[in-house]
Amino acid sequence: MSKYLVDKFLFTIDRDAALTERYREDPAGTVAWWEAEEANRILSCIDAEKSTWLRFTDEERDALATHDHVRLFEMGAHPFLTLTLWIAMFERDFDEPLGMQLDYAARLSHVSMPYPDIST
């Protein structure tokens, strides 16, 4: 897994409200667009500076396209990046206080230490 690329995706999507909404509404389309247009951008301020080799694996692409934070964590994605993005996308879907965060934690309750390596 390219933890760097997955974490870069999570970070950049979470930092733009329009992209966050786009990812919530069309996850597969957003992942495909981001991989094709943004993944290889070296310096986001210079369009001409791009690499050509960064790609998601099929497993990464599928987990991102299905909003599967459990699989992303198990593969080594940074949990703080998924948590902050998931809060932005899904907190509104829960009526109780901290409902989304409790659901997020419950889905990861099967994971025991040592946790997957989240270093990049």
Rank of each mutant, 00 (worst) to 15 (best):
I87M: 08
I87R: 15
I87A: 06
I87E: 14
I87D: 12
A88R: 15
A88I: 03
A88L: 11
A88C: 07
M89P: 01
M89R: 03
M89T: 02
M89S: 02
M89D: 01
M89V: 01
F90M: 13
F90A: 12
F90P: 07
F90I: 09
E91R: 15
E91G: 03
E91H: 14
E91C: 07
E91Q: 15
R92M: 08
R92V: 13
R92Q: 14
D93Q: 02
D93V: 01
D93W: 00
D93M: 02
D93S: 03
F94A: 11
F94Y: 15
F94M: 09
F94N: 10
D95T: 15
D95R: 14
D95M: 12
D95L: 13
D95Q: 14
E96V: 15
E96H: 06
E96A: 15
E96C: 04
E96Q: 13
E96G: 02
P97T: 05
P97E: 06
P97F: 09
P97W: 09
P97C: 08
P97D: 04
L98Q: 11
L98Y: 14
L98G: 05
L98I: 05
G99W: 06
G99K: 05
G99Y: 05
G99I: 06
G99P: 04
G99M: 06
G99A: 07
G99N: 04
M100P: 00
M100R: 04
M100K: 03
M100C: 10
M100H: 06
Q101Y: 10
Q101A: 12
Q101S: 10
L102T: 06
L102D: 13
L102W: 09
L102E: 13
D103A: 10
D103I: 01
D103F: 14
D103N: 09
D103C: 05
D103T: 11
D103V: 03
Y104M: 00
Y104Q: 00
Y104I: 01
Y104K: 00
A105I: 13
A105D: 07
A105F: 10
A105E: 04
A105Y: 09
A105T: 08
A105Q: 06
A106D: 04
A106R: 09
R107T: 02
R107H: 10
R107P: 01
R107G: 06
L108H: 14
L108T: 09
L108A: 12
L108E: 08
L108M: 15
L108Q: 11
L108F: 11
L108C: 14
L108S: 07
S109C: 10
H110S: 12
V111T: 10
V111E: 03
V111K: 07
V111H: 03
V111W: 02
V111N: 03
S112Q: 11
S112R: 13
S112M: 06
S112T: 15
S112V: 13
S112G: 03
S112L: 06
S112P: 00
M113K: 08
P114M: 11
P114R: 12
P114I: 12
P114H: 12
P114F: 13
Y115D: 02
Y115E: 02
Y115M: 08
Y115L: 12
Y115R: 04
P116L: 09
P116D: 06
P116K: 10
P116V: 12
P116F: 11
